[in-house]
């Protein structure tokens, strides 16, 4: 009877707990090793993207002032890097898309016009929706100084892709937030 209790109840729990502990330890170990490298990689990529989006800029300094929050916790400007030669700034915006948070970078020149948009991180399923993240689609925002609405359908300036308007609107809202940031900063100073 005693061995039965052990086999029936204790052994499964012990084995499951052990497997969980081993897997957790392995994960912690791998995370500890890879996390600094991942952070370094993403910083290098972010710096490269900033230069791509604002070609006239020489180098960047982080903006320490107030950042725009459109919807708390969902749509906001995460950071702003201002070009040292005052050619403009590049804002990193977080918006909500189909698969959750979407991170994108928007370059804005000193006249307040968009110089480029790039989606840097998202969790949408690849396919139709992610067409809105391709360079061809995003280049439509170049030169735009003001968006009329936060939703891509209501704005009318962008030719959006039918059936992929959730991702399209996420991108649109991000650009909207970046331009709002330009207004709040009162230009590039």
């Amino acid at each position: 009877m005693k061995s039965n209790t052990y086999k029936e109840y204790i052994a499964p729990v012990v084995v499951l707990v052990c497997i969980c502990l081993v897997v957790t330890a392995a994960l912690a170990l791998v995370y500890g090793v890879t996390d600094p490298i991942i952070k370094k990689n993403s910083k290098a990529t972010a710096d490269k993207t900033r230069t791509e989006l604002l070609k006239d800029a020489d180098s960047f300094t982080e903006y320490k002032g107030k950042l725009v929050v459109e919807q708390p916790g969902a749509v906001y400007v995460k950071d702003v890097y201002v070009a040292n030669n005052k050619a403009g700034f590049v804002a990193t915006c977080v918006t909500k898309s189909f698969g959750g948070a979407l991170t994108m970078m928007v370059g804005v020149d000193k006249e307040g016009k968009v110089t480029g948009v790039k989606v840097t991180n998202h969790a949408d399923t690849p396919g139709l929706g992610t067409k809105d993240f391709e360079a061809g689609y995003l280049s439509q925002y170049k030169g735009i100084g003001e968006l009329k609405a936060t939703n891509v359908k209501d704005d009318g300036q962008i030719k959006f892709i039918t059936g992929a308007s959730v991702s399209g609107s996420a991108v649109h809202y991000g650009v909207y937030a970046a331009l709002h940031q330009y207004k709040d900063m009162g230009g590039v100073k």
Binding site: V23, T24, A26, V30, V33, T34, D35, I37, I38
Partner: peptide, 13 residues
């Protein structure tokens, strides 16, 4: 566990 480890390794290296 496996999937997460593979993901972290790919992301880093």
């Amino acid at each position: 566990g496996f999937v997460t480890i593979v993901q972290l390794l790919l992301q880093a290296y």
